[in-house]
């Protein structure tokens, strides 16, 4: 039994080791009695991004909170960032009649800057806690023109690991 345990432990130790050191050979005939040894390892990037959950817009509401896209945790390489791209057709579609729509806009606030999210909008997040707050905006004229019924639309968030600049 002890032998088996010892064998498994040795295997585990070997698999956990990610850096391999090569011995440099120095003897009495070597000119230099010095040798450089490079120790290397690799830390893979890791991050967690939270995106908004499904949202329900109250009837006649001009602005509705849509939550935020935020970098919850990040272990990124220098000069790297997490890029969030938002895509949508910006129309809420009537479930019974797909020609009936309610146009809407998304507004993104990063820091103090607010901008309207257009097709292909993207934002780069680098540090834990970086976030883009989103709101759903529907003009009163568009509410007034809307036919009765249930409407919905899907907003897609694409997350990618990219160069920061």
């Amino acid at each position: 039994m002890k032998k088996i345990i010892a064998l498994l432990s040795a295997a585990a130790m070997l698999s956990a080791a990610s850096a391999t050191a090569f011995a440099a050979e120095i003897n009495e005939s070597t000119d230099s009695k010095q040798a450089d040894v490079t120790i290397s390892t690799s830390v893979a990037p890791a991050y967690t991004v939270s995106i908004p959950v499904n949202a329900n817009v109250a009837f006649n509401a001009a602005e509705t909170d849509f939550g935020s896209v935020s970098l919850e945790s990040a272990r990124l390489a220098p000069n790297k960032a997490v890029e969030v791209t938002i895509t949508s057709d910006f129309d809420l579609n009537n479930s019974a009649d797909n020609t009936a729509v309610i146009p809407y806009t998304l507004k993104a606030t990063k820091g103090t800057a607010t901008e309207t999210v257009g097709t292909g909008y993207s934002a780069k997040l680098q540090n834990t806690g970086d976030k883009v707050a989103l709101t759903i905006n529907i003009a009163q004229a568009d509410w007034d023109a809307a036919a009765a019924g249930d409407y919905s639309d899907t907003v897609t968030f694409n997350i990618a690991y990219v160069d920061a600049v």
């Binding site: 893979a44 990037p45 499904n54 009837f59 809407y104 019924g149 919905s152 968030f157 990618a160």
Partner: peptide, 17 residues
């Protein structure tokens, strides 16, 4: 913990008139 490949997720906005 590794996440170098792009990922996509969607959220639905709904409203009733």
């Amino acid at each position: 913990a590794y996440a170098e490949t792009p990922e996509q997720k969607g959220a639905t906005i709904s409203a009733a008139v």
